[in-house]
Design a protein around this nucleic acid. Structure first.
Lengths: 234, 234
DNA sequence: ATTTCTATAATTTTCGAAAATCAATAGAAA
DNA sequence: TTTCTATTGATTTTCGAAAATTATAGAAAT
């Protein structure tokens, strides 16, 4: 029994490649690993404490999701960020999210509705910023739970898979822009309006509101000059 | 210099994992590797003539695209097929293809139009079936080229990536259903109507026609009782 | 000074063996 | 006869070293 360095509790009873994939993904999405950064195996072996095989597999998987880039015999890099990529991401998110919500509206049952009402309620009970001005992790969790609840009835594995991948990319941009929450934006009002439209099965309004919601986040990120320093180009 | 068994000419100057990925993908999409088939490393090493590392990486990449399934410590399998999966695939294809075409209609220039006209012309010059009743590879190539030409101006890397992945899945179902071409269907008429609508920038008609086109293919596949034997369940 | 070539160093890619895990079977106990 | 446990066998997963490739630095030539 060599298996020991299980790091995060939940990585128990998982393959090494599985847990190193999770950790790499989180580090990239959290911005710990900077956009464009070179990923050398010697360093990765050091910092993640695993051998080549699970590392290469995890990176290959991340490359398929476009969170990292693989260049022939020249190694892996964290995917760069750019304005045009952010615009492309917004476009796809608007289409995929709205599609998932519209299908959920068509197919959702009472239990689906209840989960949304519960999620928006829980979200409203929590401030997005802590006393120190940082984003509250618990708020982030409830925020994700709320958005997930909206699409939970869409009944399409592929739609949910693509949505998940796009959300990862969006989260990365969002977290690279530190103060994305503190821009005087009324999150709760937006979320409530969205929740109301969905629960009322108002497809037209839900479609309009989710697209607006996603677009506003991107506007804030685009305006963040700090992000230039993270390597945002065209 | 150990590199030698480059199989298909184009795999030169490519990494081993890259070419074994290409070969595995083709074998799966072509139905050579049956749905649900177990992929044991001993056998794969034998038949593809490479070591474990490039094989595992290639399979990991294919797993991310859902062409193969990875189960913890229980190996890789070719992704199974099912009616519900085929329906899910159709749903996503209709959305993604129509979106790509509509964006191309908005953004395409004269050169884009010309390429479509050229592609539909080339497609019309070729019979889909050979004298022996098989699908003509040259027709398949022109068919793909035509459909690609329709979306060539959509200007969205993510949209094109997802479209490519969905097309791979669709091609697999289509090829598992041997006589998908020979069902008395008038391909050329459908393609011409689609081409005309797109070149005329008639978004409404193009949207309707592409969705119909995709749905008809699925109808034929669903009706193919041969496919039951390939493992099509719910 | 600039370029080109060669030798060296750094890094990725691949292989083969060791370790870990899962499936199957046989044997013991109920 | 059935159920449970231990052992064997088959297979995946992981490691560490070898091979191949790319990058770097210095020397020679223009």
């Amino acid at each position: 029994m060599t298996m020991a360095q299980g790091a995060t509790a939940d990585s128990a009873s998982k393959t090494l490649m599985g847990s190193v994939y999770d950790r790499l993904r989180r580090d990239i999405v959290d911005g710990e690993l900077r956009p464009g950064a070179r990923l050398r195996f010697d360093e990765l072996k050091e910092s993640y404490g695993v051998g080549l095989s699970p590392l290469r597999e995890a990176l290959t998987r991340l490359a398929a999701e476009k969170l990292v880039i693989l260049e022939q015999n020249r190694g892996f890099h964290v995917a760069p960020i750019s304005r045009s990529d952010l615009n492309d991401l917004l476009l796809m998110r608007q289409e995929i999210e709205s599609l998932a919500i519209l299908r959920s509206i068509e197919r959702g049952d009472d239990q689906w509705e209840s989960a949304i009402v519960a999620a928006i309620h829980a979200l409203g009970k929590r401030q997005s910023l802590t006393a120190e001005g940082h984003i509250d992790p618990e708020w982030e969790l409830r925020h994700r739970t709320f958005h997930d609840s909206l699409v939970a009835a869409c009944d399409s594995p592929r739609l949910l898979l693509y949505r998940q991948q796009l959300t990862d990319h969006a989260d990365r941009y969002r977290r690279l822009s530190h103060h994305y929450v503190s821009s005087g934006r009324d999150h709760l009002a937006e979320h409530c309006a969205l929740s109301d439209a969905v629960v009322a099965r108002d497809a037209e309004a839900a479609n309009r509101l989710i697209r607006q919601h996603l677009a506003r986040t991107v506007e804030i990120i685009q305006a963040d000059e700090d992000l230039q320093k993270s390597g945002l180009e065209d």
